[in-house]
């Protein structure tokens, strides 16, 4: 058997892998121990072109694209029913700033929500959607998930809300 003689590259890779394991491992463990399910922080740019008070709709425009996700309570992670989630994006039917590009839906008993909307298309460099929780019961959260491919026909985002 040949003795193990690490090259410089192997050493660097091992070191990087070890460092990555330590950081990700630590990141996963700490918040769980500290406060149960941690609240979702707002994403950068999440509130861009937000128009408060989007109406609850069956579907935004002609549909064809699905926005979905879940809403849970911070701490115990219990699903939240009847929570209003507002959704908007640049789609084949309008810009983010157009009121008709905005709509809202309510979560079901299992905390899940699902709203059909027109196909999202790339704008400002990447195809992305916007979601907001902005009602009194919990702290406001704005999300801005990015599609992995502009050809995707669905996108999802999950909320963990902290009581206000």
């Amino acid at each position: 058997m040949t003795p193990y003689r690490p090259t410089r590259r192997a050493l660097v890779l091992t070191g990087a892998a070890a460092a990555a394991a330590v950081t990700t491992g630590g990141g996963l463990v700490t918040p769980a121990r500290a406060a149960g399910v941690a609240p979702t922080p707002s994403m950068r740019g999440g509130a861009n072109n937000y128009l408060p008070g989007a109406p609850i709709v069956e579907r935004i425009g002609g549909g064809g694209f699905w926005m979905s996700g879940t809403v849970r309570r911070a701490g115990d992670g219990a699903p939240l029913e009847g929570v209003r989630i507002q959704i908007w994006a640049h789609t084949t039917e309008g810009h983010e700033r157009d009121p008709h590009s905005h709509g809202a839906t309510l979560t079901r008993a299992d905390g899940a929500f699902r709203l059909e909307m027109p196909q999202i298309i790339p704008a400002f460099g990447q195809a992305h959607g916007h979601l907001a929780y902005d009602d009194p019961a919990f702290e406001t959260v704005f999300l801005r998930p990015v599609m992995s491919s502009p050809n995707d026909t669905s996108l999802s985002a999950d909320f963990v809300l902290k009581p206000a």
Binding site: M43, R44, G45, G46, N48, N49, R97
Partner: peptide, 23 residues
């Protein structure tokens, strides 16, 4: 042109607060 299209996205970019590295 981008400013007229979406002012908040351009403000984010100019202040280096954008979620998108390309900006």
């Amino acid at each position: 042109g981008l400013w007229v299209t979406s002012p908040p996205d351009v403000i984010d970019a100019l202040t280096f607060a954008s979620p998108t590295p390309f900006s």
